[in-house]
Design a protein around this nucleic acid. Structure first.
Lengths: 189, 189
DNA sequence: GAACCCCTAGACAGGTCTGTCTGTTCCGGC
DNA sequence: GCCGGAACAGACAGACCTGTCTAGGGGTTC
C-alpha cells in the first residue's frame, strides 16, 4: 500500500468534513473510520485545525487539477472551454454526496477573516480565478478581467444555489448567462 | 420595555450565530449575553435547533423586508430597481460584522437537505427569488424566469465572494454583469 | 392577603470534545 | 538476532455541551 497513514487521515477527514461539516466531525470518528490510532494523528498534525488545513490544501490541488483537466479535455476553443466549466459543475452537482464547496463551507464555519482556515479558502478561490483569467485572455474581448469576474460570480452562485436548493438545472442556467456575457464582451475589438 | 424575553433571545442568538456560527455558539453564551435564565429559554423553545429556526425565520422576514424596501425606495423603474439590488448588497457587504448570508451558512453547517434548518434556508432563497421574478416581469423581456435566475446567481455569487475573499467592489462588478444581461434580455419583444 | 405565573440563579446529569500519556506490538535494516 | 522508529490500543484529564431540576423572587389579579 503506497498510501501512508497521513494520506489515509487526510482522505477520511476530507470525506467526513464534506458530509458533516468541520466542527461536528470529531477526531475520534475520523480515527475510527480511517483505522488509525490517535497518537498517529498527533504525530502528523499538532491540532485538529492543522488536519483541516491539510485536507483543504489537498483538495485545493486536486479539485483545481480536476476542473482544469476536464475543461481542457472538452475543447481547445477558448470560448467553449470557458463554457465547459459549467458542464463540469453540472456533473459535480449531480454526483453523490455533493454538499457544496468545501472552501465556502470552511469560510462559513471559520468566519474570522484572519483565521488560517478562512484564508486558505480565499487563496483557493483566487488561484482558480487566475486560471479563468488566463482563459479569458485568449478570447478577443475588451476587458478579460471583468469577464473573468462575471463568470466566477456565476460559478459561485451556481454552487451555492445547488447546495442550498438542489441541483436541478442550475449549472445549465448559469451557462446560458455566461454565453450572453461572453458574446456581449466579445463585441469589442 | 416592549421587547419580550423571547425576542431578546432571538436577537442575541441571531447576532452570535452570525459572528461565530451555529454549532460553535453555545446556549450558555447566548443566555449570558441576553441576560436571560436558562429555564426561560427552555420555556419558549424545546431545543437549540428550535431557537436556530426562530432566528432564521425572524431574519427571513426582516431581511427580505429590508431589501425590498431599499430597492423600492431607490427607483420605480423596473430595470433600475433590479439593479439597485446590487447597490443594497454593496452597503450590506461594507457593514460591520458582515459574515455572509446566514442561510447559506446554515445550509453549510446543516448539510442534510432533509434537516429543517437546511430547508428553512432553501425556503428563504425561493421566496426572495419570487420577488425578483415579479420585478423582472415588469420588464419587457422575452424570458423573465431566465433573467431572474441569472440575477439571483449573480447575487449569490457576490455574497459568497464578499464573504470569502473580501467585499471590495464585488457588488459593483455583479451589477455590471446584471446590466449586460438585462440589456441582452430586453432585445426581445 | 393569597393564588398565580413568569422569571432568576445555579447545581446537576450524562454525554462529547480535544489533546496527552502509557505501554505494547510490529517490521525493516543492520 | 537485535535495535529503533512508527503505529496500535486505550485510559485519562479537563473542558464544554445540551437539557433537567430545584428553590425561590417579584409582580398582577382576584
Amino acid at each position: 500500500m503506497a498510501e501512508s497513514r497521513k494520506d489515509q487521515l487526510i482522505e477520511t477527514a476530507f470525506r467526513l468534513f464534506q458530509a458533516d461539516g468541520y466542527r461536528s466531525t470529531g477526531i475520534n470518528r475520523i480515527l475510527d473510520e480511517a483505522g488509525v490510532a490517535k497518537q498517529t494523528l498527533y504525530n502528523h498534525f499538532r491540532t485538529k485545525d492543522e488536519l483541516i488545513l491539510a485536507a483543504l490544501e489537498r483538495w485545493d490541488r486536486d479539485s483545481r487539477q480536476w476542473l482544469v483537466d476536464a475543461m481542457e479535455a472538452r475543447s481547445d476553443d477558448p470560448r467553449e472551454r470557458l463554457l465547459a466549466l459549467f458542464d463540469v459543475l453540472d456533473e459535480w452537482f449531480a454526483s453523490a454526496g455533493f454538499r457544496g464547496c468545501l472552501f465556502v463551507n470552511a469560510a462559513a464555519e471559520f468566519g474570522d477573516p484572519e483565521d488560517p482556515i478562512h484564508q486558505a479558502a480565499a487563496d483557493h478561490k483566487q488561484e482558480f480565478r487566475e486560471y479563468l483569467l488566463a482563459q479569458a485572455r485568449r478570447l478577443e474581448v475588451d476587458d478579460p478581467e471583468a469577464l473573468t469576474e462575471h463568470i466566477a460570480l456565476l460559478m459561485e452562485g451556481a454552487i451555492v444555489t445547488a447546495q442550498v436548493g438542489g441541483a436541478t438545472g442550475v449549472a445549465g442556467r448559469a451557462r446560458a448567462a455566461a454565453e450572453t456575457l461572453i458574446s456581449a464582451a466579445g463585441s469589442a475589438v
